[in-house]
Each structure stands twice: as C-alpha cells, then as structure tokens.
Design a protein around this nucleic acid. Structure first.
Lengths: 215, 215
DNA sequence: TCTTGTGAACAAATTCACAGCG
DNA sequence: CGCTGTGAATTTGTTCACAAGA
C-alpha cells in the first residue's frame, strides 16, 4: 500500500534476488536480520520495507521464503511482460544485451536499434538489430514501453525524444549526461564515469563512508 | 568544509561535466538555474551544493565557468592520479575498458585481470590483461587503490576479498549481488537488472515519479 | 531587477525502542 | 527468550523565502 520510494523498490529487488538464491538452496524461512546481513542494510530497514508489501512474517519463524518471493514477484513484475528496446548496439549495448538475456522473464528486450548499416539486419545476442529510422514503427508493432539508451552523449537526447514520441514510459540511460524527458516518463541515468568518480572520492577522503556501516 | 554526502558528490560530478561542455563552447559564466535546467535538479539545490565548495559566485554574473570548473576538478580529482584495476574482461568488462579509456585523466585503469588463459597476456583496449593469480603482486607494483568488478555473481565475493586484501580502498561492482567489504572500504554496487526493474516499476505504476519533477 | 548565499521550514529516509506474541 | 510490526524520534536531504549586493 501507499506509495513506493525509489530506494525501497531497489531494495525490494535486491531482497528478491537473495530470496531466489535461498529458494534454490531449499532454505524455507529467513529472518529480517539474515536478509539485512546479505545486503548491507539494517534489519529494521528490511522489516520496514516489507511492511508495505501485502505480506506478513511470523515472529517465530521469520519470513517464509517462497511465499515472500511470490509476493515480491507479483509486486515487481506487474501483471504482464514489459517489452524493452535497446538503442545503440556498440560495446556497451552488446554487453547489456548479452548480460540481460533471459535474466528476468517479465522484462524482455525484443528489439535493438543502431544507425550503422553494418549492424542492422543481424541478430545481436538473440535480438534483431533494426535501423534507427524504423524506431517508431517497431516500437508500435512490438508494444514496447521501455527503452535502454546506450549511445553516447550528443546523440542521446535525440534518441530519447524519439523514444518518448513513440510512447515509451521508462528509460534507462547510459549516456554520460542528464537527458530531458516529460514528467510522465521515468528516466534513470547511470554514468560509469560519475560512478567511478564517486568511488574514487570516498575511497580517498574517508575510508569510512557517510552511510556504509551496518550490522 | 563539512562532510560530503554521496548524493552531492554525484551531483558535483554532473555539474563538472556540464561546466566542461560550457567551457569548450567558450561560455564564460553560468547561473545556478542554468546548471539546474541541464541536470534535472532545482536551482536551490545547485546553490546549496556549491555552498560547501571553496568557491563563491557573483550575484550579478553568476558563476565563473572556468574557475568553478577548476575548483570542482580540485575537489573531485584529489591531489594525484588514482590507479584502477578491472577484474573480469568479459563483455561488460571490455565495454567498461573501452568506454572509460582516457575519459578522466586522474582516474587511470592501469591493469585488467581475468582467469581465462586465452585472455591473459594480451592488451584489451589499451590495458594489459593479467592472470588473476597475479592480482596482489600487480596491485602492489602499480599502486592501485581502486577496483572495478565485472565478474558474475558467485565469483565476485572472492575477487572482492582479494582486492581488499591487496589494499584497495574503493570498489565499483557490477556483480548482481551485494558484496561484503570491511567498513573502511567504499563499495558501490550497480546492477543492470535492478536498475531496469526499477525503471519498469515506475514506468508502470506512475508515469509520475516520486521525485522526478523539478524546474 | 536580477542574482547568490543561507537560515529556517519542510520532507524523506532511516533507526530506535518496545509492545505483543508464540 | 528472540522474533515481527510499528509508532516515535532522529537524521539526512531538499526546498522556501528573503536579505544583501550590484
């Protein structure tokens, strides 16, 4: 119930991954502090996150792995598979296609795009590469609602504009710069350079993170 | 002064990138709301972030691009180049090497590691690939203080343990799971699957982010 | 009339601490 | 006991709103 914060959704995704592993190991139940230990958050945080989910643990046995997993699957996956397009089949784009393939059944990368004629018309890691000029058509045909942008800087804004114009509702961008989208579209930026700069900064100045110690 | 939050350091890194671009375009000064517009943050946030930096703008001309840039460079880069090792020269590792090369002069990826004998002994995007058994030696010889982990799940914890044992102070991890490090080591996790799940979730449930509208 | 810089207000995220329960 | 669930307190992060300057 209520409304989810970005942070809590990310953590729920992490809990789910851990629960999957426990499930594979035939572990039947888990305490909040077990989950906490696995993912560098506090036990209270875990319980708080799970509060909002339509699920209750037992004070004596903790949380039941398989039913909690089912609840999180329901929440995070939503009712039906969401189709994803990836734009920019360069080095990074290929890595994403390869890495992602089949990892989440309800998130399916169903088309890739590139402007390099040498790349279009082939399959890349199981996904057809289309010319970027077909973007709108293919997105419509395949009912794609999410985009991954792995083109560089200057081209990225144009790509995002096209994605938005084609009805995409969420974008994961690896362009090294913030991109402009209308407020109804969710965008998440990840930039390698910024991420490494952050690590470098805190490695240098602390050796003790602002927020990195738990138990 | 004071102590920096992770969020503010990330934003400062973004400001720096924007300032670099402005500098290249020979734009001499910039107002807080200009920076804000470029990166989906409020103008007050920009001013607040810059408050803590040893720099003052002018109420009439705003911020001087080149001197602010210099200040941010000083803060974010630190006194000397930090050396980085990358572990896992697979698809994603290669993409990182290729993408990163030379982008930040003060952050230098000086060695790569892989356990596949077919990969070691070659250069990958300008970086020598060493056998993972040489990790400790090479890290010591090259005075490496940062690590990027691009190996998968199960191997990742072992790699991180070795990095930590070899004196690394900061890690950027792409392993799909949280990893255990001592509190003196800063670790940043990025997981593609979680990132896309987050985008998918908010694309589905809102169309309006919890915290995505500014001006 | 524009800014910047900033105290004060506010909001969000996290932890504390404990009731309640088997 | 040791656990969950949760109000209350706290800490962290962001915006408001305005004084002061040119």
């Amino acid at each position: 119930m209520a409304s989810w914060s970005e942070h809590s959704v990310v953590r729920l995704s992490v809990y789910r991954r851990i629960l999957s592993r426990l499930h594979e190991q035939s572990i039947k139940q888990v305490y909040s502090h077990d989950l906490a230990r696995e993912c560098r958050v506090s036990a209270a945080m875990v319980r708080r996150d799970l509060m909002g989910v339509d699920y209750s643990g037992s004070a004596v046995r903790g949380y039941d792995v398989s039913s909690l997993l089912k609840t999180l699957n329901h929440l995070l996956d939503g009712p039906r598979t969401q189709h994803v397009a990836l734009v920019g089949v360069g080095n990074l784009g290929s890595a994403v296609l390869n890495y992602f393939g089949g990892r989440r059944p309800k998130l399916d990368i169903v088309a890739a795009f590139d402007r390099d004629p040498a790349k279009v018309g082939r399959m890349a890691y199981g996904v057809m590469v289309h010319p970027i000029t077909d973007l709108k058509q293919v997105l419509h045909d395949k009912q794609i609602s999410l985009g991954i942008v792995t083109v560089n800087g200057t081209e990225a804004q144009g790509v995002v504009d096209q994605l938005v114009a084609s009805g995409v509702k969420g974008i994961l961008s690896f362009a090294g710069m913030p991109l402009r989208v209308p407020p109804a579209v969710f965008i998440e930026d990840f930039d390698l350079v910024t991420a490494l700069e952050k690590v470098a900064f805190f490695a240098r100045t602390h050796g003790q993170t602002p927020g990195s110690q738990e138990q």
